[in-house]
């Protein structure tokens, strides 16, 4: 049976991990490659690197991180952040990333999804979308870390992204992100049922039951989490055991 996936996310700024594993004896905790290798050994199912470097001058640094990761890590990994053109995608994929994630650039220029899918295949185009619940009942997709509304409802945007050739959706509900109070199950389920491509739930994981809710109630195909793994609140193994006990198929 197809397993549900557990995906740790590492935030990288100028080639250094700024949100990653704490409290563990890593030789260099700031090295994204070492962190990635650690999660690979822990049997994480995939990894996401989010490049949060504000300026694009450091593109080469991220390419180098990707290249070194690909030499050591034999699970799929995605790179997001700052990918604005097909050439940016090509750089990351040629360096060894399996997928690229686009967010603001896809909203500004939806044909980027189409072009990326045509050149590299849908399987490597992840469209990240960050909805926020609005007073008028819409689930408005925001950009710039949840600060800028776009007037686009995530229920429309997910279908449009799929139609343009997205291979997967990375859904981060902004109201929940960083709260550790659980994923937004309603939005996750609605998006997951609206498209036929896989949906990764993100934003809000604080305990293992939250992962379970997102996969069962939210019908997500994968869960992305940062803090609960980085701070060793739980290991990947504990998360998998918890979910397996509840009948969720997991890679063992």
């Amino acid at each position: 049976m197809l397993a549900k996936r557990i995906i740790p996310c590492l935030d990288v700024d100028q080639g250094r991990v700024v949100k990653g594993i704490n409290f563990v004896d890593l030789v260099d905790a700031g090295d994204p490659v070492e962190q990635a290798a650690y999660y690979d050994a822990e049997e994480a199912d995939e990894l996401v690197f989010l490049d949060i470097t504000a300026s694009s001058d450091h593109r080469d640094t991220m390419v180098d991180v990707v290249r070194r990761t690909a030499e050591q890590v034999f699970i799929p990994f995605t790179v997001g952040g700052g990918i604005r053109t097909v050439d940016d995608m090509r750089l990351m994929l040629e360096a060894g990333a399996d997928k690229v994630s686009i967010n603001t650039s896809a909203l500004q220029n939806p044909s980027l999804i189409e072009e990326g899918a045509r050149r590299f295949g849908s399987q490597c185009i992840v469209v990240a979308m960050d909805p926020k619940r609005m007073a008028d009942g819409t689930w408005d997709v925001h950009t710039h870390g949840g600060r800028t509304p776009t007037g686009i409802d995530v229920r429309d945007w997910c279908r449009k992204a799929e139609g343009l050739g997205a291979g997967e959706i990375l859904l981060t509900v902004m109201d929940k992100d960083g709260t550790q109070s659980g994923y937004d199950i309603e939005i996750t389920r609605t998006v997951s049922e609206s498209v036929s491509i896989p949906v990764i739930a993100s934003g809000g994981a604080g305990n293992l039951e939250h992962l379970h809710e997102a996969l069962e109630g939210g019908k997500a195909d994968a869960v992305l989490a940062a803090s609960i793994f980085h701070f060793r609140t739980y290991t990947i193994r504990q998360a998998k055991d918890y979910l397996l006990e509840r009948g969720v198929p997991m890679r063992t």
């Binding site: 049976m1 197809l2 397993a3 199912d45 896989p198 890679r251």
Partner: peptide, 29 residues
Amino acid sequence: KIPHMGWNQIEGPKGHPVLSGVDSGAYAY
């Protein structure tokens, strides 16, 4: 969901040298 994306089980490996030591039910990407 299409694509079929993620880890799934490969069942009943039959005797080919490339599958040596791979158990039925092993997960592959």
